[in-house]
Amino acid sequence: MMKRMKIGVLAFFSAGLMLTSCNNAALEEKVADLEQRVAELESNNPASASKTASLTKQISQPENNAPQGDAPAFEFEESSYDFGSITEGDVVEHVFKFTNTGEAPLVIQSASASCGCTVPSYPREPVAPGESGEIQVKFNSANKPGVQNKTVSITANTNPTITRLTIKSNVMPKGEQAAGPVRK
């Protein structure tokens, strides 16, 4: 009973830290550390570990969204992009290009970012087999000095149902010179 309370408390604080992680990369590291601790606590109890594995599988691949038969498939030209050094306050964007290499139309249900400072946009209509599409990701570096790593999770009728893209940058405080790729 006490172990379950500890896991619940850690999960609660982990969720709280995730909500505030926009403001500090160090908090993101703390969230990862807490998640690891929760996993360690759960691994001490085989019954709890199997329940967690079962729940994780259900969450990451919901039965209603899991494709059957000839499924669509993402093939991205790249799954990660580094903006290099940018100046605090810059709004930068990158387009992730993909092709549906599956045998059925690809339907994206949602695209969400790990932080409100990152905004993805995606095609709302199905992408036919062999056709291409784009996921545009904008990052607003206002009040985000330091190294930033952000994740965009795409939920689609693919297998697995969730695909992740990442962006990163080194945000230089205003007044310092940034060196990196040309910003749009």
Rank of each mutant, 00 (worst) to 15 (best):
126 P>R: 02
43 S>F: 01
131 E>T: 04
46 P>E: 00
80 S>D: 10
165 L>Y: 06
35 E>C: 00
157 N>F: 08
7 I>M: 11
62 P>W: 05
169 S>R: 04
130 G>Q: 01
88 E>V: 07
5 M>D: 11
171 V>L: 08
60 S>C: 00
33 D>E: 13
111 A>D: 01
65 N>D: 14
100 N>W: 09
181 P>R: 14
131 E>C: 00
104 A>I: 09
86 I>T: 02
180 G>C: 06
98 F>Q: 06
13 F>E: 07
37 R>T: 02
64 N>P: 04
182 V>Q: 15
71 A>H: 03
117 C>R: 12
38 V>F: 02
63 E>H: 09
113 A>Y: 02
105 P>R: 00
49 A>C: 10
19 L>I: 12
29 E>K: 12
87 T>W: 11
77 E>I: 09
78 E>G: 04
82 D>E: 07
75 E>K: 14
14 S>F: 01
95 V>N: 15
111 A>Q: 09
168 K>A: 07
72 P>N: 04
50 S>F: 01
17 L>F: 12
167 I>E: 04
105 P>H: 00
24 N>Q: 05
129 P>N: 05
96 F>V: 09
6 K>N: 03
124 R>Y: 02
18 M>S: 14
49 A>R: 08
6 K>R: 12
59 I>G: 03
74 F>R: 06
78 E>L: 01
88 E>R: 01
112 S>M: 09
56 T>I: 00
144 K>D: 10
65 N>Y: 11
159 N>M: 02
132 S>P: 07
28 E>F: 04
36 Q>G: 03
108 I>K: 03
7 I>H: 08
23 N>F: 15
55 L>C: 01
73 A>H: 12
121 S>F: 02
174 K>E: 12
10 L>N: 13
